[in-house]
């Protein structure tokens, strides 16, 4: 119990770092996390959006972006996303 940490505390510690966001559908984002709220709506900077289509990954570059938390599935702290490996 002593070292119990809430999931969102972990995300709070990622503020200022790169993060990889995987949505429920075929869509992923990477960016620098600037902040988030209780709904896990996230503000990201220097964002790349990846749409996974049968034709391959379609990339879109975005500036500061508010991502709706509604369809977020996974958050991977410190990762630069699908292109890292």
């Amino acid at each position: 119990m002593a070292s119990q940490i809430l999931p969102l505390e972990l995300i709070d510690r990622c503020i200022g770092s790169r993060i990889w966001v995987i949505m429920k559908g075929d869509r992923e984002f990477t960016g620098t996390l600037l902040g988030f709220d209780d709904f896990v709506n996230m503000v990201l900077e220097d964002v790349t959006e990846y749409e996974i289509t049968p034709q391959g990954k379609k990339k879109t570059s975005l500036a500061q972006t508010l991502l709706n938390g509604n369809n977020i599935c996974l958050l991977i702290p410190g990762s630069n996303g699908p292109e890292e490996s």
Partner: peptide
């Protein structure tokens, strides 16, 4: 120190050009 919350972002972006993407793409 970091004013990166969604609320702060929205305050800063009102009146600016934005791209709104829907779930449909």
């Amino acid at each position: 120190s970091h004013t990166g919350s969604p609320t702060d972002f929205l305050k800063g972006v009102v009146g600016k050009r934005v791209i709104v993407r829907l779930n449909s793409g």
